[in-house]
Simulated assay, not measured.
Amino acid sequence: MNSQVVPLPLLNLTFGVHAFKALALATDLGVFTELSGSSTTVPRFAERHGIDERPAELLLTACTALGLLHLDDSGTYTNTELSQEFLVRGKPYYFGGRVAVVDRHEYPAYLKLADSLRGNYPVTWDAERQESLFAPDDPVMVEFFWEGRYTLSAFSARRVAEKLDFTAIRRVLDVGGGGGAFAVELCRHHPGVRVTIFDLPFVCDLTRTRITAAGLADRIPFVAGDFFADRLPEGHDTVLLSNILHDWNEADARRILAICADALPADGTLIICESFVGDDKRGPAPAALMSLNMLVEAWGRNYTAAEYTSWLREVGLRTERGSLLDGAPTTAALVARKARP
């Protein structure tokens, strides 16, 4: 036995469930929102939430160890910079919606991961009864998924708006843009840009309120439709696909790319934002794990940049560059341009 090899990395992996459930419970209780501009102690926290001091201390200690709370020498807990920025409801990049989706929608499905592995089918929805994951009659999806979609995408959208050159871009078609995160961030950062959200009718209805609240209704119109059944609206110099393609199997992903290419004018731009698995299929871990998540969620996986480059070439688009989105849940943006005839 190699004495230099120890099981601690494996133990740390098993702690993942404990860490996530501590985050999910504290977020669901509104702990970080409660402590925005305030503080608490174990007795005060226990009294406020109607619980004994022992469980109160255990949860607060766990959150402190995870870097979500700060404990001073007087026994007072406050938010850390991380939780203050991303776990306080109402903040621009509030991440609690994504936490709720994983807790309510994805976490239970992992109890059936072996079923998905053996049967090669998703378990977060009824594949025999529903046409797809995105069903308007699924209460969990309606209540949590689209809010979680926004919170997962908002910071990535900000990075795209900051890092990519939008000088020549005026009209963006955000295909499957429900939630509105990319539309909002692009318009906020680039006053000359208008973004059309194309998505299913019920998703458009759920997203309108957020666009209105952002004060951008005059620059972010909606077109309701199904990209497999309806022609994409014309008049856009750029098409955006953000976290769409990984939901679909290879044949459907290539079909979506062809549909988007057909909607672009000559010299038009296609932007693909995804968590790309490396071309060598060795990682990175977040993209690989999100790809595994598709086993319980849908029929796709996280594809590689090399695969996208090949598929784009088949539909007349030339990959120009890729940009890493540092610190964002979506790892990179791939930019391609439609060739002139």
Rank of each mutant, 00 (worst) to 15 (best):
R89L: 04
G30P: 11
V123C: 07
T64L: 00
P136Y: 09
S132T: 15
D126Q: 07
E47C: 03
E57H: 08
P55W: 13
Y110M: 13
V31K: 04
K112M: 09
G96W: 05
C63W: 01
R89H: 10
V31S: 03
P136V: 05
C63I: 02
T40W: 03
E53M: 13
E47P: 01
D52G: 14
G96E: 06
Y94Q: 02
G97M: 09
P139I: 02
Y93W: 12
P43K: 07
H70A: 14
W125P: 00
D126P: 03
D72G: 08
S39G: 03
P92K: 10
F86W: 12
D52L: 11
G90I: 08
L68C: 03
T80G: 02
T61M: 08
V123I: 12
G67W: 09
F134E: 07
T78S: 14
R44N: 13
T41I: 10
S83C: 04
T124F: 01
G90V: 08
G75Q: 04
W125E: 08
G75M: 02
L71T: 01
N120F: 12
F134Q: 06
P92H: 10
F134G: 09
V42G: 08
S36G: 10
Y77S: 05
E57C: 01
L59A: 06
P122I: 05
L113D: 04
E34G: 06
G50W: 10
A135G: 14
P108A: 11
P139F: 01
L68T: 00
N120L: 14
Y77F: 15
C63E: 14
Q130M: 10
A62G: 10
E47K: 14
P139W: 03
L113N: 08
T124V: 15
I51P: 00
D103P: 05
G119Y: 06
L111N: 12
Y121Q: 14
F95C: 04
